[in-house]
């Protein structure tokens, strides 16, 4: 996979997610699009950290520890994405909580019907 592949893939996911959020009427589908958007951004972050020809940032041997700088990929994007994924998860949980509540109380998850609901 060369440069364009990973970057293009992440931008594609971002674009897809954005369109999904704008165009969908069902709240659950909007949530799914949001997840796609977030995955796209996370993928982008990780692929930014990649360096050709290097290994994962786990220095499992003494020799590796001594001369590590030119040998491993960037550990920071991986840490960032770890956090970002969990944050996205938290958001998704709240969103789904809203969706479940909406469905239980009003019987629908269609956001265009929100204005017409009684309550």
């Amino acid at each position: 996979m060369n440069a364009l592949d990973f970057y293009a893939l992440s931008v594609f996911l971002i674009g897809l997610g954005l369109m999904g959020v704008f165009l969908n009427r069902d709240f659950v589908k909007i949530l799914i699009s949001l997840s796609v958007l977030e995955s796209g951004v996370n993928l982008l972050i990780v692929s930014i950290g990649y360096v050709r020809g290097r290994i994962a940032p786990i220095l499992f041997s003494k020799e590796l520890q001594a001369s590590a700088v030119g040998k491993v990929v960037d550990p920071v994007p991986q840490a960032l994405v770890l956090t970002a994924i969990v944050i996205g998860l938290g958001l998704l949980a709240v969103g789904l909580g809203m969706a479940v509540w909406m469905h239980r109380r009003f019987g629908t998850t269609d956001v265009s019907e929100l204005k017409d609901l009684a309550g």
Binding site: I14, G17, L18, V21, F27, I30, L34, L37, E38, V41, L44, I45, A84, L91, V94, G95, M98, W101, M102, R105, F106, V111, L114, K115, L117, A118, G119
Partner: peptide
């Protein structure tokens, strides 16, 4: 109430997209 979920959903969607753009 209906208005609470409507407000919450609108805020949530706008805010989450904004967060992702900020992360980008």
């Amino acid at each position: 109430k209906r208005e609470s979920i409507e407000a919450g959903v609108k805020y949530f969607v706008l805010g989450s997209v904004a967060s992702s753009l900020f992360l980008l």
